[in-house]
Amino acid sequence: MENSTKTEVFSWIKSLLAVVVLVIICRQFLFTPVTVNGGSMSPTFHHNDRVMVMKMSEIEHSDMIVFEAPTSSDKHIKRVIGMPGDRLRVHNDQLYINDVLVEEPYLDKNKESSPFALTEDFEVEVPEDCLFVMGDNRLHSGDSRMYGFVPEEDVFGEVKIRFYPFSGVGIP
């Protein structure tokens, strides 16, 4: 009886170690949880929302990414507006990427509640290996309009799912 108990305990220990190693590998190379700080992505995300970031993802226009902020060691969450080589222009609160008008439905709630234009007029070309990012709460967002382009190498990954609060669980 004692030998079978030892075998059972050893089997459980091996299984638990395998799970721990798998979790560490997944967290290091595939995905990681991140907590939203501040309101720059409101109403898409709110302060203290918890999201899962996929580290191995191909970034595209309108993706929400987590990156190391150029102005501090904080992680920021913003929306990708411009990719390398893009010509961006905002005129009368309308975004044009390479002279094509782009709809931004994620701004609708903020536009309804503001008597002001959300985004000032500007024009910029995104350099190679960089991204241009902005928060959805354009009137209250520190983003590429203030601190410049985000090097692609500073991107941790793409936000894939919100898992807290439970009432907001899902794909943003």
Rank of each mutant, 00 (worst) to 15 (best):
L95H: 03
N37L: 10
D99C: 04
I171T: 12
R27E: 13
V90M: 10
E112H: 08
I25L: 14
N110H: 03
V23A: 15
C26P: 01
E158N: 11
G142Q: 12
C130R: 08
K14P: 04
K55P: 12
V34G: 00
R89W: 05
M146V: 14
N48S: 11
D99G: 02
L107V: 02
H91L: 14
G135A: 08
D108L: 10
V36K: 00
L139N: 11
S141D: 09
K160M: 14
H46C: 00
L95F: 11
I81K: 05
F163D: 03
D63S: 04
Y96S: 00
D121Q: 03
K160Q: 11
A18D: 02
D129S: 12
G157E: 09
K55T: 02
V90C: 10
G142S: 15
R27A: 12
E2Q: 13
R89M: 14
F156K: 15
L16T: 12
P172W: 04
V124A: 05
N137K: 09
D143S: 00
V34I: 15
L30P: 07
E128R: 06
V66E: 06
L16Q: 00
M146K: 14
S73K: 14
P70I: 08
T7K: 15
R79T: 11
E112S: 06
V9Y: 14
L101W: 01
H91T: 14
P33Y: 03
G142E: 14
H61M: 05
D136M: 05
F31S: 12
F29E: 08
D136H: 04
